[in-house]
Every structure is written in structure tokens, then in C-alpha cells.
Design a protein around this nucleic acid. Structure first.
Lengths: 177, 177
DNA sequence: TAGTTCGTAAAGTTTTAACTGTACAAATTA
DNA sequence: TAATTTGTACAGTTAAAACTTTACGAACTA
């Protein structure tokens, strides 16, 4: 094996490991590999270059790249005289980490919160209604406690995401040891 | 609709919302629903009760419950005179949150770190080898920087997980507002 | 204007994951 | 000991996701 091959093999090994890891965050192995390819590429790449490099269809590259763009892990680059779209890997992984979670979590959290509030409102009406049987009332009171607990939790989660978005998290867990 | 139904409908609505949310963490909608069922259940449940309640197979309940146990979101309960296994929802969501991420992330992180270290070692040998061409050498030097960056990032991630596991995170982002 | 090239939508195929039914080992009961 | 019950492994099926091929509009080129 020549020296160049050694370098490429080392890259490949790491890219694969990284892609496996990303599947924990809901990123496909293939999409993860594409990110790795772009991360090590010295120049921005076109869809055709990606498809040749990874041996996949151009359509897959197109959708994968869009996915990575939505996660702020890849950005489009403009180059004069170049007709094709060029893409490069975003190099701030801490930023990507924050963005990944804020983006995907925020919506879910607020949906959950409004669902809880709606249910809470209904249950409180139930408890205050004199026609409600005692049996149902005690159940309702128990449920209200559980909703309240959940509400507190989602509030915490929201503040957690806040600290990611605001980079405050890096005050508590600094980047360099 | 009677009062009891209102209560159940409110539960159902929230459970569904919660289960959808959980899919972001890699938990299936069905498994999420099972957790919700157990969360609101006033008593620990058997596999048969779960399957009747959710209209699914007993096998599915068995695997789902095991999954939730591995995530420390559900625990087996012993009750005298009861032949069947009983399960109840773990009620500390902050604990579950921490456990979920520590468990699933730790392995991946350390795998990545050792992969990087292996690649770094090889590349350094490459750079120090007088037979390596200058072209490959410059590529290797660039790659080494990228590996180093990744290494720093995974170190940060490790410390992040540390602060989840040690509950230190709650010093920075307190549970109650 | 007609002919290319590029990116992506849409439909079709393949692969993977979720779920079910059957079967069986272990524990329990008679 | 034989007969039940309980939980789960395993194989098979169904549902979902990933990926490819085809096709086409938009932008560029001659």
C-alpha cells in the first residue's frame, strides 16, 4: 500500500466511524459519510463529484446535501465562472451540535406544552364541575399532578435548549480543557 | 361524552404528543405510547394488560418493555402472590433524560476517539517518513489538524455527558425556574 | 431559437425496521 | 409426573425508509 492510500484509508476509517455515530442523532449513515467526505475535501464539491466519490445517484446527493444544509452542517458556496452548485462542510462542530438540537427539539417541546395546557384546562374544569363523580375527580387530580410535572420538565428542556442556542453552555462546559 | 371519557381523551392526546416527541430521541411511536400508558397508570401493569390496552401483540409489549428498561424509563416491580411480571414507569424524567444520552453516546464517543487516535498515529508516521512525497505530506498535515479538531470536539462532548451523568448540569440549568 | 446542462420532483425498487404468530423453555400448579 | 401459565426467541409478514431511474423545468450556451 502506498503512502497516499494510507492517508485515504485513515480518512475512510474515521468517516465511517463518525457516520455511525451520527446515526444516534437521526442522521443516516450515507448522509453522515457525505458530510465526512466534504469535511476532508480541500475544495468545495459539486453534486457530480460527490456521486462519483460515493458511488451513489445524483438525486441522493441532492437530497442529502439539502438535509445537511437544513442542519447547518453544509453550506452552498459561490464561485465565479462555476455553473454547478458548490458545497462545503461547515467547520464549527459545536455550532452544528447546538443547531441540530435546537432545530429539532424546539417544535416538539412547544407542541407538547400546548397539548399539556389544553389537557390541564379541561381537567380543571372537570374538577370544578359539581356534576363530576368523586371517582373521576380523584383521577383528575392525580392526572393534573402528572401534567404539571411534565410541564416543569419541558420548561427545563426549553431552558436547556436556550443555553445551547445562546452558547451559554460553553461557559459551563468550556471548549478547551 | 361523559366525564370519564374526557379524562381519558385528554390523556390520550398528551400521550400521543409525547410519543411523537420521543421519536426525536430514537424511541418508536409505539414504544413511546407504551411509556405514556405506564406513566398514567395508577398501578404497575402486566404484559397482558398492556397488550389489551394498546391492542398490540404480547411479543411487542415484551420487547418494548425491555427497551424501556434498558433506557431506565421503566422498572420491573415485585408483588407478592403475583405470577406475572409487573412494570411501572420511572417517574424521574430528568434522570431518564441523562441516562438516555449517556448510555447511547458514551460508546460512540469513545469508539470515535480511538479511531481518531489510530489514524493520527498513522499520519504522524507518514509525515516523519522521509520516503513520503511532499504532496502527501502536506495533505497529511492538513488531515492531522482536522483529526485534532475532532478530538477536541469529542473531548468536549464527553465532558458534556459527564455533566449530565453527574447531575452537574442541574447546577447550571436548575430544575425549578 | 434550439440544444445543453444542472438540479430536483415523482414514481418505482430495494433495503431495513416494526410488528405478529408460532413455538418453546422455564417456572408453577395440581 | 403431567398440565398450565408466562415470557421471549425465531421466522415470517407488513409497513416504512432509503435509494435509483426517469423525466422535466430552469438556467445557460451557441
Amino acid at each position: 500500500m502506498n503512502e497516499q492510500d494510507k492517508l485515504l484509508k485513515a480518512r475512510d476509517r474515521f468517516i465511517d466511524s463518525m457516520a455511525k455515530n451520527m446515526s444516534l442523532y437521526g442522521i443516516t449513515h450515507s448522509v453522515g459519510r457525505l458530510y465526512g467526505l466534504l469535511y476532508f475535501s480541500e475544495k468545495p464539491m459539486t453534486l457530480d463529484e460527490m456521486k462519483d466519490e460515493l458511488g451513489m445517484s445524483k438525486t441522493s446527493m441532492s437530497t442529502a446535501v439539502r438535509q445537511l444544509q437544513e442542519l447547518n452542517m453544509v453550506e452552498k458556496v459561490w464561485k465565479k465562472g462555476e455553473r454547478k452548485d458548490l458545497y462545503q462542510a461547515a467547520d464549527d462542530w459545536y455550532e452544528s451540535f447546538s443547531a441540530l438540537f435546537s432545530t429539532s427539539w424546539r417544535t416538539g417541546i412547544s407542541l407538547n406544552i400546548s397539548t399539556i395546557n389544553r389537557s390541564l384546562k379541561e381537567l380543571r374544569a372537570l374538577v370544578e364541575n359539581p356534576e363530576t363523580s368523586d371517582e373521576v375527580k380523584t383521577s383528575a387530580v392525580l392526572d393534573i399532578e402528572k401534567y404539571q410535572y411534565a410541564l416543569d420538565y419541558y420548561d427545563w428542556l426549553n431552558r436547556f435548549v436556550d443555553s445551547l442556542e445562546s452558547k451559554e453552555i460553553f461557559d459551563h462546559i468550556p471548549k478547551k480543557e
